Simulated scan of single mutants.
Amino acid sequence: MVIPVHDVNPARGTPYVTYALIATNVLVFLYTPGLAGSVAGDSGLSQLCHLQAFLDHYAAVPQELIHHQMPRLVPTGEVGAGTHGPGCLVSAPDYDKSPPLSVLTAMFLHGSWLHLLGNMLFLLIFGNNIEDRLGHVRFALFYVACGYAAGYGFALLNDSSADPLLGASGAIAGVLGAYLVLYPRARVWVLVPFLVFLPLRLPAWLVLGFWFALQAVYSSGGGVSTAGTVAYEAHVAGFLAGMLLAWPLRRGTPPPPEPRSLLWGRQARHGW
């Protein structure tokens, strides 16, 4: 796995929507009930119960999206005593939940700092150029559309799942798909873990193509023992949606500037 850190593809304007999305994701994470304690190192049962209650309310659930089967009992956020010891209390939900709207709210929820920072890094690196090409309003609509494609794509393949789906990665995967279509020759600085992190400048088609290939393999169950908590199918669906939406714009998109930076201490003539 390679870690992108910077692309050699300057945008013409300020990516206000990209910055606003990053700021919103960070603020939502900081104010998510049950996560404040985990940030400070305290992840007790009370914190877990508050987090479960919040996610059941605002995260997307495949079973709800496809079959509109709302749960009869949901966590209340309180801790109670049970036959097997303390646990999270459940009761009938005291709120009305809109499954389609939950796809939107789920795009701004994250379960950990690592989950959040990884997503925001990809959005920061690749989002500015897509916003530059689409414009602020169209980019915002594009981002949401890819998030919905990812959420419903995952739900269709996992329609019996009652586990909450959350995170911006589906929408950001759409940004990556659009970047691959519009700027395949742009250079991306990445860190490759090989005993130490080696810096390399690679073409976007290789970096993003490799990333998508990994998601496709993992979504089919290959290369991992279990799917775990990562919604690889959502990544694949979002990426393909981003490619399809960006495809009509590829001919009118100017190529990225040819980089003239140093590579391994020498002037790179051709680069990647």
Rank of each mutant, 00 (worst) to 15 (best):
G34C: 06
C146E: 09
P71T: 13
P93E: 09
I125V: 15
Y19I: 12
G82S: 07
P86Q: 12
C88M: 07
F142G: 08
K97H: 06
L65A: 06
D56H: 10
L45F: 02
F139C: 10
Y19R: 14
T76H: 02
Q69V: 13
L45Y: 02
L55E: 13
G151T: 08
A40L: 14
N129H: 07
V137C: 10
A23T: 13
A36V: 08
A140I: 13
L156R: 10
D56I: 00
L141I: 12
L35T: 04
S102G: 05
C49Y: 01
P33N: 07
L73E: 14
E64H: 05
F108R: 03
I125L: 11
D132L: 03
H57K: 15
G85A: 06
I130H: 06
F108N: 02
S112Y: 04
L55M: 12
P71F: 10
F54N: 11
W113G: 02
Y58R: 09
L65I: 11
A40Q: 10
P93T: 08
G41N: 04
Q47K: 06
E64F: 05
L141R: 15
F29R: 04
L65H: 05
R133M: 12
G135N: 07
A20H: 11
A81E: 15
G153E: 03
Y95W: 14
H136V: 14
F108Y: 15
A145F: 08
G111W: 06
S43I: 00
G80K: 05
F122S: 09
P86Y: 09
V90S: 10
A155Q: 05
D94Q: 14
A140M: 15
F54I: 01
P100M: 14
R138I: 01
A59D: 01
A36D: 01
L30F: 10
F108D: 03
G44H: 03
I66K: 04
A145W: 04
G85S: 05
G135I: 07
V39Q: 07
Y143W: 15
L21A: 14
S43F: 10
D56M: 14
